[in-house]
């Protein structure tokens, strides 16, 4: 039962990262690409980290996974903000 949940989480995470890459190729302008490049990879990493945490199942791993998620979720919007700011300056 555990194996099914972990497999599902890892597959869903990889799928969301692939969706982000497809969106990066398909969207027509920079800001729409930023939409795809900010949300979907963070969610994919969240799912994969959850799956790997459940797989190893020790307290240290849960702590490190929590750190990864905090970093990602604090920094992904900031990175998008920095990229959009540097683009707007140009014109």
């Amino acid at each position: 039962m555990d194996k099914i949940i972990i497999s599902g989480l890892i597959l869903a995470g990889s799928f969301f990262i692939l969706v982000a890459a497809i969106g990066l190729v398909r969207f027509p302008d920079l800001f729409s690409r930023l939409h795809a490049g900010t949300k979907a990879p963070s969610f994919g990493i969240l799912l994969i980290v959850l799956g790997v945490c459940l797989y190893f199942n020790t307290p240290v791993i849960y702590l490190k996974g929590f750190f990864i998620l905090i970093f990602i979720y604090l920094t992904a919007p900031l990175a998008a903000h920095a990229i959009s700011r540097s683009f707007k300056q140009k014109d």
Binding site: A20, L30, G37, P41, T58, F87
Partner: peptide, 30 residues
């Protein structure tokens, strides 16, 4: 534009993180 390239680099970092995580499950090393 260069900004598109930076976005792509950001995504590549996420992909590499996913690779390392899945690989750690494959070889069973935490």
């Amino acid at each position: 534009s260069i900004n598109d390239r930076i976005t792509a680099m950001d995504l590549i970092a996420s992909v590499v993180m996913g690779f390392v995580l899945v690989y750690s499950v494959l070889i069973n090393q935490s």
